[in-house]
Simulated scan of single mutants.
Amino acid sequence: MSKPGLILIGAGGHAHACIDVIEQYGGYNIAGLIGMPDELHDHHLGYTVIGTDDDLFELAKTIQYALITLGQIKTPAHRIRLYEQVVALGFQLPTIMAPSAYVSPHATLGAGTIVMHGAIVNAGASVGKNCIINTRALLEHDAAVADHCHISTGAILNGNTAIGSGSFVGSGCIVKQGVSLGRGCVVGMGFTVRHNQPDYALFARHKKS
């Protein structure tokens, strides 16, 4: 039985990491990537940029599945806009898990979320829609990650933590057990978060909380 086609929305570096995970996952054939006009016909790991955002309406007539493969560091706005666009066009967004990741059968993942190589999503954890759980990230028991978040490489969310929608937790960060971050927070690389944070809290270099 042939695998369904999957369009990747975003043609940068994060798309390369997603391609590798999708290939290992094995459930879809990558039909091509969507990029900027100046990226048309570029090749990425053997796949071609076949269109821009303006082509998604026509592509939705023949391809059922799409995944947002644009990265998220400074703002979630672009990933949110693309997610809402593809949902409105009728695409289905799969949940992708690397074979080397561990996702507990007692955890939940939302549509359009990708769990990268070596990540762990432990029992009782929940992850919303359109999230990136990046390489070797750890979500401990009962951690809750809302929609459109990026939990970056090697980050640790300890038990019963809560991450608000659209937040970014940078590489190597540690969020203390039971701590909550509000919506739209940005935690820079390597920080330890020990106390609850309001919406749009920003952790910049040389600042710890």
Rank of each mutant, 00 (worst) to 15 (best):
I50F: 09
S180D: 03
E140W: 07
L181R: 02
Q72L: 12
A201W: 13
G112A: 10
F203N: 00
H78L: 15
L70K: 13
C149F: 09
H43E: 15
H78G: 00
R183Q: 15
G71F: 10
L139R: 01
G184L: 10
G124F: 11
E23P: 00
A137R: 05
T153G: 11
F168T: 05
V121E: 00
L56Y: 06
K176C: 06
A123K: 02
V86E: 01
F168D: 05
G182D: 02
I63D: 01
S152E: 14
T113A: 07
G51L: 09
E140F: 08
A88T: 11
G154F: 13
G170K: 05
K176A: 10
H44M: 15
L67T: 06
A119Q: 08
H206P: 00
D42N: 13
T95M: 10
L202M: 14
L139N: 03
I34D: 04
N130E: 08
G46A: 11
I50Y: 12
M97I: 15
V179A: 09
Q24N: 14
I156D: 02
G164F: 02
R205I: 14
Q72I: 12
S165P: 00
H44L: 14
A11G: 04
V121F: 03
L40E: 07
V103E: 03
Q24V: 11
T135W: 01
D20F: 04
G170R: 07
L157A: 07
H41F: 13
G10H: 04
A98T: 01
H206L: 10
L56Q: 03
D147E: 04
M189T: 14
L45H: 10
A125N: 08
G71Q: 06
A88V: 03
A66V: 12
I19R: 05
A101V: 11
K3F: 11
S152K: 01
T135S: 13
A31Q: 13
H148R: 06
N29L: 11
S104C: 13
R194P: 00
G27T: 00
K74P: 00
L45N: 10
E58G: 04
Y47F: 14
A11K: 01
H41E: 15
H43T: 15
G170M: 09
L93K: 02
R136P: 00
G172H: 13
A31S: 15
G110I: 09
L56K: 05
G154V: 07
K207S: 13
G27D: 13
G182S: 09
G172D: 07
I30A: 03
H148M: 04
A15M: 05
A107G: 06
G159K: 07
P105Y: 10
I73Y: 01
D142Q: 13
L40A: 09
G5M: 02
